[in-house]
């Protein structure tokens, strides 16, 4: 493998890790506040559809992004109503949201565009274009560092940079602000937060809506930047890989970035090479597909450093018993 192949592989790792990272940070906010969310997949999917649909109709990708975020927020609010207000089972609510998105996107896509559940291909202003970092062109001639800067770091869509900037932002919000402290507290011991006179319901709705916002950006990235348009079930399990990455990272932002880059790399390798020859042994492509899930199970099993979720996760908060 030569240097340029490695650069290309890492470049596609960054692209593939971006939606995972956004969804993973989305889940981080929700689960740190004590609301389990296995509906990341559904929220990404509906955002992917509405962003592509609005971008296709208006020709403006920014309007598409807004529509995607809006639709994802609607599903996030539904999750909030079911799991916070009506104290329903958060896991079942997540399952319902995934199916709702899978069905509705195809139904509406067929009604609006009659193309078998897809949107028209996005052209021109309907897509996020590559965003060049300063001096990318002129520095590309520099050996080693030049290609790394101009090929690997520069030339992604603006959403990629937003995703990676969201990592320190998430860290700062969760660990350096009053809101973050309360949000983490509500995921560990909501009764204590309630006693301090802070609204448990309000905080949890806040967290769930931030989760919706980030899932919305993730979905929009899939349909308007990574690919040009929506196709049926285009999230293809990414919401669950993000969930796996979240557990792998033990609910911490910087580790989440590491986990998403690792899983992105696995996807990039599986995409580029079919079967890999390693010293006489052939690793089948399916093993690469399954690896993120296997790693997560191993981490969950606690054989390699135990993953302990926020203590109040999954339990509805009842003020008085």
């Amino acid at each position: 493998m030569d240097f340029l192949t490695i650069i290309q592989l890492l470049d596609s790792t960054v692209r593939l890790a971006t939606p995972l990272l956004l969804a993973c940070l989305a889940g981080l906010f929700s689960e740190r506040a004590g609301i389990f969310d296995i509906g990341l997949e559904g929220k990404m999917l509906i955002a992917a559809f509405f962003s592509a649909a609005v971008a296709a109709v208006t020709g403006n990708v920014w309007l598409g992004l807004l529509a995607g975020i809006g639709s994802s927020l609607v599903l996030a609010a539904l999750h909030g109503v079911a799991s916070i207000t009506f104290r329903g089972n958060q896991l079942i609510s997540g399952v319902a949201i995934n199916f709702l998105a899978a069905g509705m996107t195809v139904l509406i896509a067929q009604d609006w565009f009659q193309q078998g559940g897809r949107t028209p291909s996005l052209i021109g202003g309907g897509r996020f274009t590559p965003f060049d970092l300063p001096f990318a062109e002129s520095l590309s001639g520099v050996p080693v560092l030049g290609p790394i800067y101009s090929e690997l770091l520069s030339g992604h869509s603006i959403l990629v940079y937003i995703a990676f900037l969201a990592v320190p932002a998430t860290w700062w919000v969760l660990f350096r602000t009053r809101f973050g402290l309360r949000l983490r507290a509500v995921g560990e011991n909501p009764a204590a937060v309630d006693t301090a006179g802070v609204s448990v319901v309000g905080l949890r709705y806040g967290a769930v809506l931030i989760c919706g916002l980030l899932c919305g950006i993730a979905g929009a990235y899939l349909a308007t930047a990574l690919q040009a348009g929506f196709v049926k079930d285009m999230t293809a399990g990414r919401g669950f890989i993000a969930l796996a990455a979240l557990i792998f990272a033990k609910w911490r932002p910087w580790h989440a970035m590491g986990a998403c880059l690792l899983f992105g790399l696995l996807q990039a390798i599986a995409l580029r090479f079919q079967n890999i020859e390693l010293g006489g042994i052939t690793i089948p492509v399916q093993a690469m597909d399954a690896l993120p899930y296997v790693l997560t199970v191993v981490i969950l099993a606690g054989f390699v450093g135990k993953a302990i979720p926020p203590r109040a996760g999954g339990e509805p908060y009842v003020k008085e018993r």
Partner: peptide
């Protein structure tokens, strides 16, 4: 008709939502 098969997925989602997650909305 022009209704795609995915309608069933939507119905399935709504059944899960109402009988599962929103059970208390009906029950209370």
């Amino acid at each position: 008709t022009s209704i795609p098969r995915e309608l069933i997925v939507v119905i399935q989602a709504l059944v899960i939502l109402f009988t599962g997650a929103l059970d208390n909305m009906v029950r209370m």
